[in-house]
Write a protein that binds this DNA or RNA. Structure first.
Lengths: 219, 219
DNA sequence: CCTCTTTTGTTGTAAAAACAACCGATTTGT
DNA sequence: ACAAATCGGTTGTTTTTACAACAAAAGAGG
């Protein structure tokens, strides 16, 4: 667990809390570290979760496979990001998505109750973390709405432009890389891979974008 | 403002706080009441907001009109629900959606900073509200993911079934009403109205659903 | 009660996406 | 280094949607 404290320090959740303070908070927040092999499920649809999770190593996808095997990728989780925050309320229902490891990964689970109620211990930074959590959830919320705005686009072309523009803006550069391969991007935008591939090439031939592998540039 | 305290009492945000306590918190939270006529914009895309809003009268839509007039309805806000929670973090960007009044409406804006930092005043229920806010955002988050799961469906038919099933489950009944007319539902699911209307009638003719106006039943 | 407006359903056509099948290039594992 | 698997691009066909135009029904207002 200790080796991941520097990672935690750089997360939005523990922003403003130094390493020794994080270390002392770990027991207070009932932190539990778990490892997952590539392809393993971290959480499964239908399960009940009561804890907040932070990815400290690897890469995850939040996704959903339907009866016929069609996959929807709701979002991706990179190192330092949290997940499971949509299920911290006592009245929360069961999970509606799977969370799966794309690479060998490590996740730390925290007891949210401890995070939310001020503890009597020495955790002076309790309230800071609680506030960070609030802001982190606010941002997450905004990201979801932004993803919704891509999904609201009617055509594959528009979805691509919407997504690529947003990524370009987010990464503050006209050239950027995306965390998906073609199939994953198609699953993320909920379109057919071949049709999307076709559309990407059209956009390239029209001189609007350039790309190679998962590196893109808006022109 | 006073007349809306009973409304506030029933909101998730002020759950567990009684009316007199809410009244004493209003000044502490810098509450400001504003009225909007039907059709008026409560918030506009590109604006910067720093406050958390609660609808205490009327009905709102969170939406987005593109250059060609195509409308996307991201969500609807009923009395007692909050909005603007995605912009409470200091590093939040500007609004990416419009919020518009569908009926004459009343909105109370709160200063989030006051809500998050414990005040030195008599507000014993400060922390309760802060915790409520966290849970409310968690739920909101889950609703957004659920809407994403409708949007991920490829066909109009699947989107309809996904949405109607979720509403049925949410309202705990096989017959329920929805807060949209046909055009609004189409904008909400991002499909063509006439095609959707057609699909609805097919579903009805196949005996899967029944409906009249905005009352639906799953069979 | 009648008119005007809004809402909903219907239909035909054009456009777009899904699907399937295939190939070449790249990557991975041994 | 080689075989197998994965990945990305291409094309033709089928299915679905978007679009447009219109008619019927419902609702609002004088």
């Amino acid at each position: 667990m200790k080796k991941y404290i520097p990672i935690l320090k750089r997360t939005q959740l523990f922003s403003g809390v130094n390493e020794s303070e994080i270390e002392s908070m770990l027991s207070c927040l009932d932190a539990r570290l778990k490892y997952y092999k590539k392809g393993e499920y971290v959480l499964r649809e239908g399960e009940r979760v009561g804890s907040l999770a932070v990815l400290v190593e690897g890469k995850l996808h939040i996704q959903n496979d339907d009866y016929w095997g069609n996959r929807s990728i709701i979002g991706d989780i990179a190192v330092g990001e949290m997940f499971g925050e949509a299920y911290i309320a006592p009245q929360s229902d069961t999970l509606i998505n799977d969370v799966v490891a794309l690479e060998d990964s490590a996740v730390i689970f925290f007891n949210v109750t401890c995070m939310v109620t001020t503890c009597s211990n020495t955790c002076r930074f309790h309230s800071a973390v609680a506030q960070n959590l609030l802001f982190a959830m606010s941002e997450k919320n905004r990201k979801l709405v932004q993803k919704l705005s891509h999904m609201h686009k009617r055509t594959t072309r528009e979805k691509l432009i919407s997504y690529l523009s947003a990524e370009s803006k987010r990464q503050n550069s006209s050239s950027f890389s995306i965390p998906f391969n073609r199939q994953q991007l198609a699953d993320f935008l909920s379109v057919d891979r071949s049709a999307m591939s076709n559309e990407l090439c059209k956009l390239r031939d029209e001189g609007l974008i350039a790309f190679s592998k998962n590196n893109f540039e808006l022109l």
